[in-house]
Design a protein around this nucleic acid. Structure first.
Lengths: 347, 347
DNA sequence: ATACAGGATTGGAGCGCTCTAACTGGTAGA
DNA sequence: TCTACCAGTTAGAGCGCTCCAATCCTGTAT
């Protein structure tokens, strides 16, 4: 049986501490640990004299609060978990950019995990994320079954980006693909185009919405839709363009591509075939990736406000975290058309 | 004075616990908390019967260990801190991709922080990162003063990516800019080029190495270096190309641009001036961003293996974390030339 | 001088976990 | 029968912090 314990000691010894604790700062400033805690949390009920003494001591020791200890003791965390289905995809990178800015402005840190496009790995990633007991999580384009999402949502606030949900406990942020396509079609019609083809994105995310929007808009103008199955890649864009060219005469005068990369593929095929863009054929992309902005390319495209999506998702999450809202929010972002040099009046 | 404390109680009550703790699992499995801890850490010294009982109880309760409590108690963490000077830049996004893969394979999680190109914000970000008491930190292209780096390195393993250091306590991972430039020059000379200009990257990172490599290689071939000050942007590339054109006759037959984006700017200016690439002038980029690979662009460029850099950086960091090495490592990655369609024989 | 208010400060318990040392109940050797 | 041993298990302290309640001031009113 230990008789005399209690001599904490290490704080009073003036040896160099590798990673100082609150106790060390308190000893150096000649105050209690609790007071240091108050100062570190910016409490107003500390006298100026003590506050300065504490800050000075902390500075000298190079002290920074231990986040894990802090969140353990306070039973809440300043961490937001982020699951990205694919970090490689710049689309998500730019959304994270928006999340990052908003979260940091509100004093939250990000713990980022990737799913690598595999539902099994994503599931593990979610469990991992939850082990940090974050204040909430943001799932970017997750491929996990809905049950994983509802389980998580039962424990903490969850926001889905680029994926829908019917759960009342989760918020969602997506772009309005139908509107985006319609925007492009409307403008092309305005420019005098009547034969407008659409290269679609196959079974990939958002593809159906864009296709439907295209069809509806065409019919609204009394025009016949002309969908050519394609994919979200450059090669698929080249292939779809080649199919179009193989028709011979009566070519469309404009193409709404599946996305930017697909549009660029189409443009190179048209170019090799001797067609000038936009004089002979107009091309519109989708996403407004940084790619589209290069003068060398100058792609007219539908802008999907990715950073904005990140911001909205984070704000929605923080509202739940703070308990300001319990009803679900469904953000459907309004896309906009960015006109550059690949569109012109119909020939 | 409290006489009878000790009745923790909450574990034995069978009510639904929102976020179960080890205590809850122990109560349900009919064992001690310590045993649950052993099971969760995969200790071999637990009987099969108990192990299964514990895992079963954990499964039923949906229990996952609390990472913060775990790292607080064990005094070490499974977190790696990552500071990105600019998440917006795809160059870093791809490096993070490599870091992410390696770290997760080794069971580490990433806490990512951005500096937003401002040394002051980066400094704050480093402090923030350290508050998580990560096992180590990776600084990607940091702009902070060297003192911040050495302070951090005094506390934990630090690896610098895309920045050099003389500190024995930090490892560095960079690409060998001199070699990359030389590679491009050598190949151009092989193609018969004699007048090769270089648009440089000004004061930005890696710029000096690339410039020096260019100069040395040129002199090695008995050729006169011709450096035109520029920057890592498309606009700067356009401007440098215009300067070149303004010289009138005796134009170079090839240009080694500062980077890919700079090269694309140069190509558009050349194109507008009626020069064909590569028939009239060859252009080589640097970085091999995804941009360069587009067939529409087909840029010949020097490849910098970004994912590989992320992997090497993470491995170096983990070696230090595990105490396997204390001597510094300086990775100088060997770049390679990727030939596409913007280079040809000298006219 | 005495009481009191209210701001400033502090002790101590406890967050969920790990880790050491100690304990348990067999089993085997003397 | 006694001791030794060992795999399996557990109690208890403590990681660095927050938060509550209790205590200590200091100035002002009485």
């Amino acid at each position: 049986m230990v008789i005399s314990a209690g001599v904490k000691g290490h704080a009073s010894e003036e040896r160099l501490v590798i990673t100082p604790t609150m106790e060390d700062v308190a000893a150096r400033a000649g105050v209690s640990r609790a007071l240091v805690s108050l100062v570190m949390r910016g409490s107003p009920k500390v006298s100026t004299r003590r506050r300065e003494a504490v800050l000075h001591a902390a500075e000298e020791l190079g002290y920074a609060p231990h986040a894990a200890a802090r969140s353990l003791a306070s039973r809440n965390s300043r961490i937001l978990g982020v699951l990205v289905s694919d970090l490689h995809n710049p689309f998500f990178a730019e959304i994270i950019d928006g999340i990052d800015a908003t979260a940091h402005a509100e004093g939250f840190e990000l713990v980022i995990n990737t799913g690598g496009r595999s539902p099994a790995r994503e599931r593990a990633a979610v469990t991992n994320l939850l082990s940090f007991r974050p204040a909430g999580v943001l799932l970017l384009g997750p491929a996990v079954p809905a049950s994983v999402i509802s389980d998580a949502a039962a424990r903490l606030p969850v926001v889905l980006v680029a994926r829908g949900s019917r759960l009342a406990s989760v918020d969602t942020v997506q772009d309005h693909g139908k509107v985006g396509s319609a925007l492009a079609v409307d403008r092309l019609v305005e420019l005098g185009h009547g034969r407008i083809a659409h290269f679609d994105g196959g079974r990939a995310a958002q593809s159906a919405a864009r296709r439907t929007g295209y069809r509806t808009a065409m019919r609204g103008h009394g025009l016949e839709p002309d969908v050519i199955p394609s994919e979200y890649t450059e090669v698929a864009g080249e292939k779809a363009a080649a199919e179009l060219l193989a028709r011979g005469d009566h070519l469309p005068t404009a193409v709404l591509a599946a996305n930017d990369v697909n549009a660029i593929g189409a443009i190179s095929t048209f170019g090799r075939a001797g067609l000038r863009v936009p004089e002979d054929i107009s091309v519109v992309g989708y996403d407004n990736t940084s790619l589209a902005a290069f003068r060398h390319i100058g792609l007219t495209t539908v802008d999907q406000p990715r950073a904005e999506m990140g911001r909205l998702a984070t704000e929605a999450l923080l509202q739940r975290v703070r308990g300001e809202r319990t009803t679900p929010v469904r953000h459907l972002l309004r896309p906009s058309l960015v006109e550059r040099t690949t569109t012109g009046t119909a020939s």
